[in-house]
Simulated assay, not measured.
Amino acid sequence: MELIDVFATVVEQQSLNKASQLLNVSQPALSRKIMRLEEELGIQLFVRKGKRLELTRAGEVCYEFALEQKRLERRLHEKLQAFKTSIKPASIVIGASLTTLQSTLPDLITIYTREYPNTDIKAVTGKTHEIVPLIKEKRVDIGLVASMIEDPSIVCVPLFDDPLCLVLPEGHPFADKEELFIQDLHELPMILFSRGTWYRVLMDEMFHRCGVHPDVKMEIDSFEAITRLVSTCKTATLLPESYLRHNLIEDNELTVRFIPELEQTKRTTSLLFTEEAVLEPSIRRFIDQAVRHYHTADEYTL
């Protein structure tokens, strides 16, 4: 399974150069490993587009298998751990909306597992209105949503405000324009979130308020798909700032522009849980670390 692991690393780093540094092998050696895997499988896993590597559909299937393999290996180690110690491994079930699952949850899990690597963390995806009852029914321990929830049976801790940004492909007429205003979005070809999603509702309210009507070419509910299509279709989009990591912008050859009205159009990402849930040490530690990470410890103390 070594070649599959190497392949997964290349996918996750989105760069042969970065993957070779992480794996401590030369780039030519890494390229040979990928070629050997493609020869063994008898199918192409990547296509090159300029400086970028892009997965083929077969590559996507292969990566899904690699992720499943990692999960199985992790579960194996967790099961075997039970034979080495009488202490039951800690576990946390997190309910996350799609936006927070893609943009915020990976960082929080990385921070937590760095200090508590043996914790079994599971994620359940759902819309915000679906996550709230799961918390009440104790089917998830913590909720992570891009919203503020007012419910007397749930504690809501705000982590950070997340404004919208205008994202453009390199070479777009607006990319180097000295100043941009919300009216510049009128009739601008754009790819936006699907109707009914929280971010789309936020956008539509802002468009209506400002009298702006963009030319919506596509409506999609996936951050990743929108990001790729912006470059491919040479259109603009609006994305939350928390999702716009440096490597994402660089690898997809995108430009980010800030417009005052967009900066005021923001959601608040929050943690949701019951007072009873924090009696569990692992859950309390996760919440504490999340709060410290976003510098809101002065606003909330368990």
Rank of each mutant, 00 (worst) to 15 (best):
S97I: 00
S97M: 01
S97L: 02
L98Q: 12
L98E: 10
T99P: 07
T100G: 03
Q102D: 14
S103M: 09
T104L: 14
L105R: 07
P106Y: 04
D107S: 14
D107K: 15
I109Q: 11
I109H: 08
I109S: 06
T110P: 02
T110H: 15
I111V: 12
Y112L: 05
Y116L: 08
Y116C: 08
P117T: 06
P117F: 06
N118C: 02
N118T: 07
N118Q: 11
T119F: 00
T119R: 00
D120A: 12
I121N: 04
V124K: 08
T125F: 09
T125G: 12
T125S: 15
G126V: 00
E130S: 12
E130N: 13
I131W: 10
I131F: 09
I131H: 09
V132F: 09
V132S: 09
P133L: 01
L134I: 06
K136M: 09
K136Y: 03
K136C: 03
K136A: 02
R139N: 14
V140M: 09
D141W: 04
D141T: 01
I142K: 02
I142D: 02
G143W: 06
V145L: 03
S147C: 01
M148A: 02
I149P: 03
E150Y: 11
D151R: 00
P152S: 11
P152A: 10
S153D: 15
S153T: 12
I154C: 08
V155D: 08
V155R: 10
V157W: 01
P158M: 05
P158W: 03
P158S: 08
P158L: 04
P158K: 05
L159T: 01
F160A: 00
D161W: 00
D162W: 00
P163L: 08
P163V: 06
L164S: 08
L164T: 00
